[in-house]
Amino acid sequence: MERIESKDQLDQLAKEFRYIVTDIMCRAGGGHIGGSLSLVEIIITLYFRILNLKPDEPRWEDRDRFILSKGHAGPTLYTALAYRGYFPKEVLLTLNANGTKLPSHVDQVITPGVDQTAGSLGQGLSCANGIALAGKLHKRIHNVFCVIGDGESQEGQIWEAAMFAAHHKLDNLVVITDYNKMQIDAEVEKIVSLEPVVDKWRSFGWEVFEMDGHDWDDIYDTINKAMAVKDKPAMIVAHTVKAKGNTCYENRIECHFISIPDEDERNRVIGGVCVEGEEEPFEFNWTQGK
């Protein structure tokens, strides 16, 4: 695959991703829109500019690994996998349908391209530790990327894993915190604060970066810096906006999981997929998009 470098192309991809993620959730009657849309630029950057993959050989030994520990953002990952050719785009329309291969939380057994099952929060980072450790044991040169949530970081297991990765100098591990500052019940700051989150990770022995999780250059440059770190795991605290790009829900506390009871609500929420500076809502044409 040609790596995508043009901002116009990246912007176009982000528009399509936001429409598709919103649309497939609406068709499924609901979904975790907030934490899926906050990750769009990060996942596009990983899957179109960073990760070394062979979509026709999903378990290729030398591929870079990606563990979506906040497994409820599956729809954004599925969109990236479809665009990279792991399965046809129309499969995205089966999200959460009976018998689907695309469940709301990511599943390594049924979805081609998903490296690690996740969904029960706090577990994916430990699995990423094991995967990174296996990379070291096998003397492979691939990188292991893992995305955790800010709410997820309240799980004690995250900090068990944080200690272990630093102790074992897992410098093939790059972890990104999707710091959209909201969780289900309220703002993270109101529930149990992560702050000072940068200092916390640094004190656990990690090299820590911050980035704007919606800025193409910043994401790309920061991930590259994180990959270059030696003798330590790297944490990138990505400042993101929950439900970014959907005006119905962007940065609203009720965006974690939305229910779409009827056609009117579906039209309203789909109509919320807007791009700054553009007057008309964006619409993705599934027929042409294939």
Binding site: S126, A134, E160, H168
Partner: peptide, 28 residues
């Protein structure tokens, strides 16, 4: 020493690390 890992008092993490190792073809 290269294939022995004492994770410390952190059983949940031990299970997750083992899952990741098994996912990569190791036998933990």
């Amino acid at each position: 020493p290269d294939r022995f890992f004492d994770v410390g008092v952190a059983e949940a993490n031990m299970i997750g690390i083992s899952a990741g190792l098994a996912n990569e073809g190791l036998v933990p």
